[in-house]
């Protein structure tokens, strides 16, 4: 059995609200070279996507990133700051131990570095990392952190202490010149965040012991490949295959993937759900008959940090672990490009 012994989190950059972004985004769409009808659609969509009080962290100068070089540099700078913050927490937590990590698996969907995140983290961890530590850098999407947990969970006993790290900086993708509704949905939905998880086979280590009892992975590549994918302008852009049917398609894939789950498991009040979008989550929870408070942690996170891709579910899990009782189950659910759905649960032992 693998246990989650600690979850470290960080946010870097500037905290901005919907209220701050709205006039800037509206100014951008009001000069878009499109028909009046299309422009009204963009205006209505931006207002809808930014409705209510919500915040997110963004890289400095986020509204002035106009080139590949600027965006990639902003990603690298913010990634390094995130890794510095996480490494300080990891180093402090393992200070009086002889722990060295056998495996480091990182994930990011919003940039590409060489050397990768794992090497940059290793360079900061001193003797917590050895020359034979396995270091792997994944490029996935919103399901990246759960995939990394699943991967680590399947390693053999030589992987006694492992780190799974998610660094997501989707604010570097914000594109003010787009005339596509789905790109603006991405502009409005995402925020930056990072987290690291210490896993081991020893419950007494670290701050907590969450037994990773189940992680079920369902991929729908044959039919769901085009649901979410990159588009390209001066950098990557978030694109949907069909924005009119997206929510319905995603609900269907998730519902299919959760068939066979014990109804009693769905009734747990503790859920860490990737905040893919509040409308999607709320529809899903009604369809699955989940308790009303099952979404509270995800909604709270979404309002404070927006959708921070694969980092979000780790933040939410940490929050849920703080309030769950010993012996209690915390359900995990995430979904993302591929199309992938990952469902599972951990049991809090302490």
């Amino acid at each position: 059995m693998r246990y989650i012994n600690a979850i470290y989190t960080t946010h870097q950059g500037e905290l901005v609200s919907n209220e701050f972004l709205l006039p800037h985004f509206l100014k951008a769409v009001e000069v878009a070279p499109v028909s009046p009808e299309h422009q009204q659609e963009l205006i209505d969509s931006v207002r809808y996507f930014l409705v209510g009080e919500r915040e997110r962290y963004v890289v400095p100068g986020v509204l002035d990133l106009g080139s590949f070089a600027k965006r990639a540099a902003a990603f690298e700078t913010a990634a390094e700051r995130s890794l510095e913050a996480l490494s300080q927490q990891i180093t402090l937590a393992t200070a009086s131990t002889e722990v060295s990590f056998d495996v480091i698996v990182t994930t990011t969907s919003t940039g590409s570095l060489m050397p990768g995140l794992s090497y940059r983290l290793a360079a900061r961890l001193g003797d917590r990392v050895r020359s034979d530590t396995m270091m792997v850098d994944l490029h996935v999407g919103c399901t990246g952190s759960m995939k990394a947990l699943k991967l680590v969970g399947q390693l053999d006993a030589t992987a006694a202490n492992c780190l799974v790290v998610s660094v997501e900086l989707p604010s570097t993708l914000i594109n003010l010149s787009s005339t596509d509704v789905d790109v603006w949905q991405g502009n409005c939905t995402f925020g930056d965040g990072a987290a690291a998880v210490w896993l081991s086979d020893r419950p007494p280590q670290g701050d907590m012991a969450l037994a990773m009892e189940q992680l079920r992975y369902v991929q729908h590549a044959r039919t769901g490949l085009d649901l979410i994918r990159w588009g390209y302008d001066d950098y990557y852009t978030f694109r949907l295959g069909n924005e009119n049917t997206f929510n319905r398609d995603v609900r269907e894939y998730i519902t299919q993937s959760l068939r066979g789950i014990e109804p009693a498991a769905l009734q747990s009040p503790h859920w860490a759900i990737h905040p893919a979008g509040i409308a999607l989550l709320m529809r899903l929870s009604r369809k699955l008959g989940m308790p009303r408070n099952a979404l509270d942690a995800s909604v709270t996170h979404y309002k404070r940090f927006s959708n921070a891709s694969s980092a979000s579910i780790l933040h939410i899990l940490r929050d849920e672990a703080a309030t769950a009782v010993d012996g209690g189950i915390i359900n995990l659910l995430t979904m993302g490009a591929g199309f992938n759905v990952i469902y599972g649960h951990v049991r809090k032992e302490r």
């Binding site: 809808y48 409705v51 209510g52 009080e53 919500r54 509040i278 709320m282 529809r283 909604v299």
Partner: peptide
């Protein structure tokens, strides 16, 4: 509608 129902969660609850 958006002057009365101002929070994203309320918009969704109303719609559902």
């Amino acid at each position: 509608v958006s002057d009365i129902i101002t929070q994203s969660t309320d918009v969704v609850e109303f719609t559902l």
